[in-house]
């Protein structure tokens, strides 16, 4: 008897040693644990959010006292605020990067990345996400794209400044504005990586919800929060690739002389060779993502609030099936 127990503990010990050898790096940095990845998303999202808020404060300071010198501009913006007066190009850059950060890095990745990762496995009774490794890759791609977006603030001619919708030709022609040079290249690279990250994350959420529910957790018993995350992820998977295509075509127009979005342009005293494209095509491709994006931003919040209010009033959600149908 004693022998059996000893053997069992020895075996158990051995087993534990094999699987749970966690170092600082595997636990906190390259973690495949959904809870840790959620926290990583939360902290990165919050830092990006703070940067976005700071930018909107700078914009409002400029609007409150237009073209007036301000020591804070001089200290924070340096050569882009000569004598403390904000350069109009930098105002547009703030508009652009603030919009990009808030819509994509905070409200898409920060929101879904944090809450979907944290709550989906816990609320459906799964051990972890379907693929912990892809989940980790998704976070680190998000981190990389955040780093590139922030680094674009420090290039010589300033970051992208064509608005968060980056409509060509303004974003496509380097001569149209200073931000459409290196700054726009970095914006496109950053967003391409961001979309890859978002797709990996969304696929993981969809697969986890479909395949990893615990016994008895049928789709009609799924918490409303999870329904919201699930539908959000599906919308993301369907619409983000279109933005990816638009970004790719824009890169081609910018760097390889194609004319998807450009035609009949006369700028700084010369006619460009581009002929036959249309900027309206880009608008359509962009808003194929842009419209669903409002649901990507809204649905998780709707799901979370319905459940919090229901729980705290000690009542079941009223009209669960109708809510699911509305999602």
């Amino acid at each position: 008897m004693g022998q059996v127990i000893a053997a069992a503990t020895e075996h158990g010990h051995d087993d534990g040693h094999h699987h749970h050898k966690e170092t600082f790096v595997t636990k906190y940095i390259f973690s495949t644990d959904h809870k840790m990845i959620a926290k990583q998303y939360l902290i990165t999202g919050l830092i990006m959010g703070a940067i976005g808020i700071l930018m909107s404060v700078l914009m409002r300071m400029q609007i409150a006292n237009p073209e007036q010198p301000n020591v804070i501009f001089e200290a924070l913006l340096g050569k882009w605020a000569p004598g403390g007066v904000m350069d109009p190009n930098i105002y547009l850059a703030l508009v652009t990067i603030h919009g990009t950060i808030m819509v994509f890095f905070v409200l898409t990745a920060g929101l879904s990345g944090t809450f979907s990762n944290f709550l989906i496995p816990l609320q459906i009774g799964a051990r972890d996400m379907a693929s912990g490794f892809l989940n980790m890759v998704s976070y680190w791609l998000f981190f990389l794209s955040s780093a590139i977006m922030i680094s674009s603030l420090f290039v010589e001619l300033g970051p992208a400044a064509a608005g968060w919708t980056i409509y060509p030709p303004l974003s496509a022609v380097a001569k149209a504005m200073p931000g459409s040079g290196m700054g726009m290249t970095l914006w496109l690279v950053s967003m391409a990586i961001f979309i890859a990250s978002s797709l990996l994350g969304s696929l993981n959420y969809v697969v986890t919800v479909i395949n990893m529910r615990t016994k008895g957790m049928s789709m009609t018993r799924l918490p409303l929060t999870i329904w919201a995350f699930f539908v959000t992820a599906i919308i993301g998977v369907v619409s983000f690739p279109v933005l990816f295509a638009a970004a790719l075509l824009l890169i081609m127009d910018r760097s390889f002389g194609t004319s998807f979005f450009l035609s009949d342009i006369y700028i700084k005293g010369e006619v460009l060779a581009h002929q036959g494209g249309s900027p309206v095509l880009f608008e359509h491709l962009f808003w194929f993502l842009g419209h669903p994006e409002v649901y990507i931003v809204l649905l998780p919040a709707l799901g979370i609030t319905s459940e919090i209010i229901a729980t705290n009033s000690r009542k079941p959600i009223f009209g669960y099936r109708a809510m699911v149908a509305l999602f």
């Binding site: 009033s313 000690r314 009542k315 079941p316 959600i317 009223f318 009209g319 669960y320 099936r321 109708a322």
Partner: peptide, 17 residues
């Protein structure tokens, strides 16, 4: 105080949809 258990009312939901 106890909350009333009231999970569905198809007619009400239909009206406000």
């Amino acid at each position: 105080q106890k909350a009333l258990f009231y999970a569905d009312n198809d007619r009400l939901e239909f009206i406000w949809t």
